Amino acid sequence: MNYKNEIVCKNCGTKNFDFEYICKNCKAFLRNRIVNIDLGETLLRLIDSPSETFLKIKFSEHKNYIFFLLFFISIRFLILSRFFSVPFVFEPIKLNLPLLVIISFLITLIFFVIISLSIQKILLLLKVKARFRDILAVMTYSFLPNLFALFILFPIEMVFYGEYLFSNNPYPFQIKESIFYFLLSLETLCVLWSVFLFYVGIKEFTYSRIFSLIFSIIVWIVITLTLYWQSKIFLI
C-alpha cells in the first residue's frame, strides 16, 4: 500500500514515512532532527506560524509537557462544565475540589487518548500512517488558548463576580452586563482559536483541508457533549 505521507530518500530512493528523520535503508538524514519541544517558543510561534509549529511538535522525539498541559486543560474543562450547569443548579452536589480535579483529569486524559486513537485509525483509511503520540501531542498543544483563558480570563472573572460567577440568582450578566459580554467574547475567541489550531494541526496529518475541517467540527461537538455530560455529574 502506498501512503500519502511517504517521502523518498534522496540518497538511495527508499520510501520512508515523514515522521522518520533517518532513512531505514541507508541511514541518511531525511530532515533536521528535532529532539524536544520548547514550550515558550511554541506558545509564541503558534500565533504567527501555527502550521510550522505543529510540524515541529509532530516530528519532535520527546513530547514535552503533555501531561502537564493536560492537567491544566482538565481544570479548564472542569470550569467550563460548571458554566454548563449554572442554569440547572439549585441543590448542588457536594464534592470536594481536589477530588473533582482528579476525576476531571482522568476524564480528559481518557478523552484525548480515545480521540487520538480514533484519528489514527481514520487516517489509515485515508492512507496516512501516523504515530499515536504525534497525534496526541498536536491535539494537546492545539488547546493552549484554553490555558490563556484559565490563567488570565478566569482570575479576572473571579475579581468582578466572585461567588456569583457560577450563580443563577443573580446571573453574572445581571451584575455587570457590559463586562460580562466583553469577557464572554474573549472566552469565545479562545475556543475559536483552539478550533482553528486543531484544524491546522490535523491538516499536517491529513494533507486535506476538507477532512481536517470535518475532524475539527466533530471533535469539538464531542467535547461539548462531554462537558455537558460532566456538568450533570459533577455540579459543585
Rank of each mutant, 00 (worst) to 15 (best):
T188N: 12
P170K: 08
V191G: 01
F182E: 04
I175C: 08
E187G: 09
Y171I: 01
L183K: 03
Y181K: 03
S185G: 15
F173P: 01
F166K: 08
S185W: 05
S185E: 05
K176Y: 15
I179R: 09
L189V: 15
C190W: 04
L186T: 04
F173V: 01
F182W: 11
L184E: 13
F166W: 07
L192R: 04
L189M: 14
L189F: 15
T188C: 10
K176Q: 13
F180M: 05
C190R: 01
Y164T: 12
P170C: 07
V191P: 00
S178M: 07
N168Y: 03
L183W: 02
E177Q: 14
L189T: 10
E177H: 07
T188I: 10
I179K: 12
L183I: 12
Q174C: 00
L184T: 11
E187C: 04
W193T: 12
E177W: 07
S185F: 13
E163D: 15
N168P: 05
L189H: 00
E177V: 01
N168S: 14
F166C: 10
Y181I: 01
Y171D: 04
L165V: 10
N169P: 00
Y164H: 13
N169K: 14
W193N: 11
Y164I: 03
E163N: 13
L184K: 14
S178K: 14
E187D: 14
I175Y: 09
I179P: 03
K176D: 13
Y171E: 03
V191Q: 09
E163R: 12
N169F: 11
S167E: 08
L186F: 11
P172V: 05
F180T: 04
T188D: 01
T188L: 15
L189P: 00
L165K: 03
K176I: 04
E187W: 12
K176L: 14
S167K: 05
Y181D: 02
W193I: 10
P170I: 06
I175W: 10
K176C: 00
N169I: 03
Q174D: 11
P172R: 05
K176H: 15
